[in-house]
Every structure is written in structure tokens, then in C-alpha cells.
């Protein structure tokens, strides 16, 4: 690792919802270029951790550092500005909006008309062109960038959501169950997308129940259990069966 400090570092992070303690003090370092898989049972604290990382919920306690500097994410938009994009399982895209509208949602391109300096109009042609280019870059072929996203397959939707993250030039991309409810073909497409991100030097945090997928793309794995991180190690020597055992028992052995 070239950087001395991790890209993102959590120290003693806790989260309570009323009397329920979802996270009981989590330390986690995410290094630049990692593909970190976050695994654990339902209720282990994965969703709470993702929401904190994404800026959707503030932590109840503990500290977050971004490249060594203490940081506070006021909103998802704020986290996005700081280079962290999150792709949620259900809410990754707005189904009825077009591919272009989805990719440029929140970062629309505008142009001015000569003589009307104050008026910023959407540059639809350029957005359509760049949307096509982004998808091509991810090796996803869609005929028309004006197609509503609801007509796309699950894998293609993930690609659209990823394109949006890339539009923001996100350094770290959090993907929440990206392969859930996808067929074999589609899953392969999404895993390829993750490999491509890794190859571009981006950091990926992958939340998944599918141990085979995790083992296929992750470089590191962190296991959560009962609101604590119990295992944090490289993926070397871990296969799907062993990982499933680790999740169940909370032990590496």
C-alpha cells in the first residue's frame, strides 16, 4: 500500500436505535484498492454499518477518519461529495426514469445559451452521449440511453447505478447485495463490474450473502456477529464453505 493511512478508518463505532444496540464498537480499516466483503448473519449489524458509511445515518459513538482526517457525513449527498458512493439493493435506481436521467441524477450537465448567461439548461445530448460511453466502458450494451431503467435486467440496473457512482468519480463504492435476486448470467456481469472497478484502483465494499460471489471477487473479508467485528483477514485460503462456517461460528477455525 502506497498510502500510509487507510482510505477509511472506523474506530469504536457504535449505533443504537432506541434500546437496541445494533453496533457495539466496530473498528474497521478499508484500504485504498481493497475489495472488502462484509459478511454476517441477518442482524449482525451489516445494514447499520453500511448506512453509517453511506452518510444515511450518523453513528451514535466512535470516530470515522477519511484518509487520516476525522470526517462527518451529513447526508448521502455529502458522502458522495467526499468520494463515497453507495448502491442500495432496492433503491439503486429510479425505475421510471431513463438510463441517462438515472446516471446523471444529482449531477446533471448544463449548458448556457449565448446571450442568456444566467440560464443553465440541461445538456441532454451530451448527457446521453456520456451515459452511453460510461456503460460501454463497463461493457454493458443498451440500445437506447432514453430507455426507462425498469425495462432493464437486474444486472444492467446495477451497471446504471455504478455508472452514476463513476460519474461522481467515487473512490469508494459500497454495494449492498448487488447479486441478490440475479440469475447466473447477470451475476457474472456484476462480478465482472466489480473486478473492473478493482482494476481501476477503486475501493469496493461488498455486502453479500452469497459466499461464492464473495470468494470470487473480494481481496479481504470482515465478518460481523452480534454488532461486533469478529474476523478481519485476507481472502487467501478462504473458500465458500469455510467462509460460511466462519459466519456461523464467528471463528476462523
Amino acid at each position: 500500500m502506497a498510502d500510509t493511512a487507510p482510505f477509511l478508518s472506523l474506530t469504536g463505532v457504535t449505533k443504537s436505535y432506541g434500546p437496541v444496540e445494533a453496533l457495539k464498537g466496530v473498528d474497521l480499516d478499508v484500504h485504498a484498492g481493497d475489495v472488502l466483503a462484509l459478511v454476517g448473519d441477518n442482524g449482525a449489524g451489516k445494514s447499520s454499518l453500511v448506512k453509517i458509511l453511506a452518510g444515511a445515518h450518523p453513528p451514535s459513538g466512535g470516530e470515522i477518519r477519511l484518509k487520516g482526517e476525522p470526517v462527518h457525513f451529513a447526508s448521502p449527498g455529502d458522502a458522495l461529495q467526499k468520494g463515497i458512493a453507495t448502491i442500495y439493493q432496492d433503491l439503486a435506481v429510479a425505475p421510471r426514469l431513463s438510463i441517462t436521467e438515472n446516471i446523471f441524477l444529482g449531477s446533471e450537465l448544463t449548458r448556457t445559451i449565448p446571450g442568456l448567461p444566467g440560464l443553465h439548461l440541461l445538456d441532454k445530448r451530451r448527457m446521453r452521449r456520456e451515459a452511453g460511453a460510461l456503460l460501454t466502458r463497463l461493457s454493458v450494451n443498451v440500445a437506447d440511453a432514453d430507455t426507462p431503467v425498469e425495462r432493464l435486467s437486474g444486472g444492467q440496473r446495477q451497471a446504471v447505478a455504478l455508472s452514476r457512482a463513476l460519474r461522481w468519480d467515487a473512490r469508494m463504492i459500497i454495494m449492498d447485495e448487488p447479486t441478490a435476486a440475479l440469475g447466473v448470467q447477470e451475476t457474472r456481469l456484476v462480478l465482472d463490474l466489480i473486478r473492473r472497478l478493482h482494476a481501476e484502483g477503486r475501493t469496493v465494499v461488498l455486502i453479500s450473502h452469497n459466499m461464492a460471489d464473495v470468494c470470487a471477487v473480494a481481496t479481504r473479508v470482515a465478518v460481523l456477529k452480534g454488532g461486533r467485528k469478529v474476523i478481519d483477514r485476507g481472502i487467501d485460503g478462504v473458500d465458500a464453505d469455510r467462509l460460511a462456517h466462519m459466519v456461523m461460528t464467528g471463528r476462523e477455525g
Binding site: 447526508s75 458522495l80 429510479a94 425505475p95 421510471r96 426514469l97
Partner: peptide
């Protein structure tokens, strides 16, 4: 976007 998918739009900033 707010009308078509409020939550997705919010998460997109």
C-alpha cells in the same frame, strides 16, 4: 426524480 422515486433521489443527493 423526487416524484418518481423519492428515496432513490434522496440517496443520490
Amino acid at each position: 426524480a423526487t416524484g418518481e422515486a423519492e428515496e432513490a433521489a434522496r440517496l443520490a443527493g
